[in-house]
Design a protein around this nucleic acid. Structure first.
Lengths: 149, 149
DNA sequence: TATTGTTATACTCTATAACTATA
DNA sequence: TATAGTTATAGAGTATAACAATA
C-alpha cells in the first residue's frame, strides 16, 4: 500500500497554520486580559453573550468553542463573580439561559479601547483589505460541511 | 473617556474566527489521531521534527506552539515511547536536541494517506486557489511584528 | 426515548517561578 | 550574567461517561 504520501510542509498545514497565526495574534490580547480578571475562555463567553443576547448553554458552548462540561463550570464561576446570570425558562425547564450583566458589559467596555487599538495595529501592519479577505475566508471555512467519516 | 467603542462582531474578531475555523478543521483530524496513540501536541512535535530535522527544544517548542515546560514532559514521554531521541551536543552541553526516530516516521506514514484525504476534502469543498490564498495570509499573519506594549 | 445540563474522573496543557547546569 | 532546559506547583481545560431532570 502506497500510503507514505509526503505531508504538507507545516507552514502549509491548515491546522498548524491556524494555530500559529492565532498564537501570534493572541500575544497582546493575553496581556490585555491579564489585567482584566477573566481568562480567554471567560472573555469569549462575555463577547458571545453581549453579541447574541441571552443564550442556551449548548449554543453558547458551541459559539465560544468550549465543551459543555467546561462551560458549566465556567458559567458558575462567572455567575458568582456577577458577570452573567443563569435562569431556567418556564417553557422548558431542562434549559439554562445565560445572560450578560451590566457588570459583564462594563468589563468589556473597560477593555474596548485597548482591544480596538490592538486590532488597529494589525489592520495597519497586515492591510485592511487583506484582513477583511482573511476574515471572509475564515468565516467560510467554519461553514464547510463537517466530515462524517 | 470614550472607551466604550463597540467591539467587532465575534465572526469578524480575528482571535475568535481563527479559533472557530481551527475547530471546524480539527474534527476529522482528531478522529484520525484518536487511533494513533498520540495527541495533537505530540503529532505537531513529530511533524515539526520530520520537517526540520533534529532541533533544539526551545526552537521546537516555538514551532509546535508549546511552552517549554510542556515540551519537556511531552518529549520525555515520546522518548520513552521510542518516537524521538534526545541528545546533548558536545559543543554546548546546556542544549537538548530532539530528533524523530524511524518509529516516529513510521507513525506519520501510517496516517499520511488519511491525512491527505482529509486535506483533499477541504481542498475540494473550499477551493484550491482560495485555500492557497488563505495559507498565504496565515503565513503572513505569523510573520507580523510582535507588539511591544 | 431524546434532550439539556450537571457531575465525576482522569488526563493533559497552561502559566509562572524557582532551580540546575553550562556558557 | 545570560542561556537552555528541568522541575515544581497551582490552576484550568479536554474528553468521556454516567447521571438527573425534563420534554
Amino acid at each position: 500500500m502506497a500510503n507514505d504520501l509526503p505531508l504538507r510542509r507545516t507552514k502549509r498545514s491548515l491546522p498548524i497554520a491556524l494555530l500559529r497565526a492565532r498564537e501570534s495574534v493572541m500575544g497582546p490580547i493575553r496581556d490585555m486580559l491579564a489585567s482584566s480578571g477573566v481568562n480567554e475562555q471567560k472573555w469569549r463567553v462575555l463577547r458571545v453573550l453581549q453579541e447574541r443576547g441571552p443564550s442556551e448553554l449548548t449554543q453558547l458552548a458551541s459559539e465560544a468553542c468550549l465543551l459543555l462540561p467546561s462551560l458549566t463550570r465556567i458559567a458558575r464561576a462567572m455567575e458568582e463573580d456577577g458577570l452573567i446570570t443563569r435562569t431556567t425558562p418556564d417553557d422548558d425547564r431542562r434549559k439554562t439561559i445565560a445572560a450578560i450583566t451590566p457588570a459583564g458589559e462594563a468589563l468589556i467596555r473597560t477593555h474596548s479601547a485597548q482591544s480596538a487599538s490592538i486590532f488597529a495595529r494589525i489592520e495597519r501592519d497586515f492591510g485592511l483589505e487583506r484582513l477583511e479577505s482573511l476574515l471572509d475566508m475564515l468565516e467560510a471555512l467554519q461553514a464547510l460541511p463537517r466530515a462524517k467519516d
